[in-house]
Design a protein around this nucleic acid. Structure first.
Length: 578
RNA sequence: CGGGACGUAGCUCAGCCUGGUAGAGCGCUUGGUUUGGGGCCAAGAAGUCGCAGGUUCAAAUCCUGUCGUCCCGACCA
C-alpha cells in the first residue's frame, strides 16, 4: 500500500471536542471522523486496526469452540416484551417505525434473538453444550455519549451466548470464555484484568468484567494488593467501616430533641449538636418497582444503588420524590427516621454496619426534630439486613485482611452466567437423557470491539502519538524513502522492499509523498506504525538503511539484509504477544 | 434531565465587554527556494459569524428563543 493511495488525514492541532488522549489521537492520526455526537466514520487506518481486533477475537472464539453467526440489528419488539426488557431496558432502546407504523427495535444486545433461535433449533441434550457468537453493531440510546468510541450510540461488539444442560456445565462454558478473554486482550497488547462485577439488567448470578487500568476509565475498581481480590465498586465488599459503630448499651430510651433547620448529616455533626456522622442513621426512601422502601445506613456511609437493586430483587429503583416521602412518612427529607411513623407495609432495609448499633441519632419523622439514644435492633423494625454500603479506600479485604485500594478502569469485556432467565421467558428447552423437558442454562459474553481499540490507544501512546502493539497496528511497517523521485536510489529500494515484504506476508505502507523528512517522520509516529524503515541517500551511500522501532532506537542494517531483518523483527514482536 | 462552558474559513482560535468595511496561525492552490525531524519567501482561494426572531440608521457584537457541541452530575447491559 502506498500512502498517497489511501486516506490518512493527520492533524497537527488537537480537535477542540476531544478530551482524553485516545480520543484526540483517534482524530489526530486520522483513524476516525465524527459524523455527529456518538457516531463515527472509520477511515482506512482505523478500519484496518478495527478489523485486526475483530480477527483476534474471531480466532480465539473459534479456538474456544464458539460458532459464528450474524443476527439482525433490527428486531421485533415482541421478543423484548416477552423477556421483560421492553420495559426494563426502555431507556436505551432505539425504536423505529415502518411505513405501516409498526414499531421495531434496534438491538442494543441479542439475548432475545439468540434465545429465540435456540428455542427453535435446540431440542436435545445431545446438541449441548453450544456457544454462538457474532461480531456486529449494537445501538444504545446513551444518555451521554462521550470520549469518542468509548461510549457511543452505535458501536461494534462481539457477543457470545452459551447454552448448557446444567449449572455445572454452564460454569465450564463460562470458564472457557473467561480464559479466551485473557488470551484476546493479551494478543491485543492490552493489560486487562478480570474483576468481580454486578450483573445489572442482564440478570444472572456470576459475572466478571475485564478492565484496562486507566485514569480516564468510567469504572472504580476495588482491589487488594495481594492480587486475590478485585471487584467493580458496584459489587465490592470489605470487612466494614474502619471506625466502629457505637454499641454501648446505656439503657436509655429514644429521646426527641429539637434541631431546627438541621437537615443534613453534616449539619447535625457540627455544633451545637456535635453528633459524629458514624453515630447517625441515614434514612433513605426509595421506590423499588413502585413499592416505597426505606434503606438505613450509617451516617458516614454512601448507598450503593447497584447493591440495592440486587438485594431487593427489584428491576428498577429510584429515590422517592419529596412529595412521595411527605405523603408516606409525614416529614421532609432531612428529618426522616424509621423509629416511628413508618407504615406497617413498608419494608425497612438496613445495612450490616448498623447491626448492634446503640446510642444512635436519627430523624424523628417530624420536621425540626431528631431522636437520640436509638438502639437499632431494639427500636427499629428492620425487615432485612444486607450489605448496601459503598466500599471506601483503606477498608480491609474480606479474604486477605489487607487494606483495599481503588483505581479507575475501562471495561472492555464482560462475562455473565445468566442461568435460565431468558430460556424460561423465551422457551428455550431441551429433552434430557430421561426425556424430561428442561430449560437451557445460559451464559453471555461481550467484548466492546471499538472500545477495546480505543483502550489500546489509551494505554499505548506517548507525546508523539500512538504506540501500537504490532498485532493491531494498521500496518506493521512503514517504509520512508526520503526521496520519492521514481528512479532515485531510496525510492527504488523502497519499492523493492515493499514488494518483498508484502510477498512475505508483512503489512507494509510506503510513504511515497513528496514531503520533507520531518513531516513524514512526525506523521508516521503520530499514526504509530511499529517499525519504520528510513531510506535516505546518506545511509544508502554506506549500503545501509535504518530500522526505527516506534518508541525505540535506530538500528543500521545492510541493504541486502533489510528484508530478512524486518521480517524477523515483526515475527519476534508478534510472538511476544502470544 | 439538572449545572457549567462554547458555536466566527477544513482545523485551532482572536474580535463581542464599549454596535459602524470579517481577522490570525495551521491546512489548501500557484510560483520560487530549501531538502535527515511538521523549513522559508511571495501571491491566492476560502466564512449566510449555528439557526430564527427582536432592538437599532446600522448587529459577529445587545435581547429573546431554538438547535448543536463539550465538560460535571444523574443514568448505564
Amino acid at each position: 500500500m502506498r500512502w498517497s493511495q489511501t486516506l490518512i488525514p493527520t492533524l497537527k492541532e488537537t480537535p477542540a471536542d476531544a478530551e482524553i488522549a485516545s480520543h484526540q489521537l483517534l482524530l489526530r492520526a486520522g483513524l476516525v471522523r465524527k459524523l455527529t455526537g456518538g457516531l463515527y466514520t472509520f477511515l482506512p487506518m482505523g478500519l484496518r486496526s478495527l478489523r485486526k481486533v475483530e480477527q483476534i477475537v474471531r480466532e480465539e472464539m473459534d479456538r474456544a469452540g464458539a460458532i459464528e453467526v450474524l443476527m439482525p440489528a433490527l428486531q421485533p419488539p415482541e421478543i423484548w416484551q416477552a423477556s421483560g426488557r421492553y420495559e426494563t431496558a426502555r431507556d436505551v432502546l432505539y425504536k423505529v417505525k415502518d411505513r405501516a407504523h409498526k414499531e421495531w427495535v434496534l438491538g442494543p444486545t441479542h439475548e432475545e434473538v439468540i434465545t429465540t433461535l435456540a428455542a427453535g433449533e435446540i431440542n436435545s441434550y445431545k446438541q449441548l453444550p453450544c456457544n454462538f457468537y457474532q461480531i456486529g453493531i449494537k445501538f444504545r440510546d446513551e444518555i451521554r455519549p462521550r470520549f469518542g468510541l468509548m461510549r457511543a450510540k452505535e458501536f461494534i461488539m462481539k457477543d457470545a451466548y452459551s447454552f448448557d444442560t446444567t449449572d455445572a456445565a454452564a460454569m465450564a462454558s463460562y470458564q472457557r470464555m473467561y480464559n479466551a478473554y485473557g488470551r484476546i486482550f493479551a494478543r491485543c497488547g492490552l493489560q486487562a484484568f478480570p474483576v468481580e462485577a454486578d450483573t445489572g439488567v442482564i440478570g444472572g448470578n456470576h459475572s466478571h468484567e475485564f478492565m484496562v487500568p486507566a485514569e480516564t476509565g468510567e469504572n472504580d475498581i476495588v482491589y487488594c494488593e495481594s492480587g486475590g481480590y478485585a471487584a467493580n465498586i458496584e459489587k465490592a465488599n470489605s470487612r466494614g467501616p474502619l471506625t466502629p459503630t457505637p454499641s454501648v448499651d446505656t439503657g436509655a430510651a429514644p429521646e426527641k430533641f429539637a434541631t431546627p433547620g438541621v437537615v443534613t448529616i453534616e449539619a447535625l455533626s457540627a455544633p451545637p449538636h456535635g453528633v459524629p456522622a458514624l453515630a447517625q442513621i441515614k434514612t433513605l426512601v426509595y421506590v423499588a418497582d413502585s413499592q416505597l422502601i426505606l434503606v438505613l445506613l450509617r451516617g458516614d456511609d454512601q448507598l450503593n444503588e447497584a447493591k440495592l437493586l440486587a438485594r431487593t430483587g427489584a428491576t428498577q429503583v429510584r429515590p422517592a420524590t419529596p412529595a412521595e416521602i411527605q405523603a408516606a412518612l409525614g416529614a421532609s427529607p432531612g428529618s426522616l427516621g424509621a423509629v416511628q411513623g413508618v407504615p406497617a407495609n413498608t419494608r425497612v432495609y438496613a445495612d450490616h454496619a448498623l447491626q448492634g448499633a446503640r446510642g444512635m441519632t436519627t430523624g424523628a419523622n417530624e420536621d425540626g426534630f431528631h431522636l437520640r439514644h436509638v438502639s437499632v435492633e431494639r427500636d427499629i423494625r428492620v425487615s432485612q439486613w444486607e450489605d448496601f454500603r459503598t466500599v471506601r479506600v483503606g477498608e480491609l479485604c474480606v479474604s486477605s485482611g489487607l487494606p483495599l485500594k481503588i483505581r479507575r478502569g475501562i471495561e472492555v469485556g464482560h462475562v455473565f452466567k445468566i442461568g435460565v432467565k431468558y430460556s424460561e421467558k423465551l422457551n428455550s428447552t431441551f429433552l434430557d437423557e430421561n426425556g424430561q423437558r428442561q430449560f437451557c442454562v445460559m451464559g453471555c459474553y461481550g467484548i466492546g470491539i471499538t472500545r477495546t481499540l480505543q483502550a489500546v490507544i489509551e494505554q499505548g501512546h506517548d507525546k508523539d502519538g500512538i504506540v501500537w502493539p504490532v498485532s493491531v497496528a494498521p500496518f506493521q511497517v512503514c517504509l520512508t524513502p526520503l526521496s520519492v523521485a521514481p528512479d532515485s536510489a531510496p525510492m527504488t529500494l523502497a519499492v523493492k522492499l515493499h514488494d518483498e515484504l508484502t510477498a512475505a506476508g508483512i503489512e507494509v505502507i510506503l510513504d511515497d509523498r513528496d514531503e520533507r523528512p520531518g513531516v513524514k517522520f512526525k506523521d508516521s509516529e503520530l499514526v504509530g506504525f511499529p517499525l519504520r524503515v528510513n531510506l535516505g541517500e546518506k545511509s544508502l551511500a554506506k549500503g545501509e538503511v535504518e530500522l526505527k522501532p516506534r518508541g525505540g532506537t535506530v538500528q543500521m542494517v545492510k541493504v541486502e539484509d533489510a528484508t530478512a531483518q524486518v521480517i524477523a523483527w515483526v515475527k519476534a514482536a508478534l510472538a511476544k504477544l502470544g
